[in-house]
Design a protein around this nucleic acid. Sequence first.
DNA 1: GTTCTCACA
DNA 2: TGTGAGAA
Length: 110
Amino acid sequence: MEFDESTVHALLDFDLLSKLVVGIGEVSDITGVPQRQIRYWEDKGIIRTIKDGEGTTRKYDYMNIKKILLVKELLDDGYTLDAAARKIEDRLKLVDEAFKKLADRKGSTE
DNA sequence: GTTCTCACA
DNA sequence: TGTGAGAA
């Protein structure tokens, strides 16, 4: 499989974003969602955070930040927290399945 | 700086 | 559903 230059750049960017982890303060600052609310959502199971090494501080990666922004919008559109959570989970599931199919095709043809 | 918990609306 | 305050 070969990639053109722009695709390579896109993949590098994605890799970079995946490793980008920030504290709750940064996330709150960027997304505009109060820290209290972010932890609240985590408790409800809407978002999953990573614990950093020995410390107990939560770290938020690209997916988490994206998810928080998504929940924020969904809630703003009148969804309940639960409904928003389901919608997001379903979408993630669809994306995962789509890529799985793609991987299967590539695997069988190569 | 972050975490948790109890209480309240 | 979301917040405030105090303690660690």
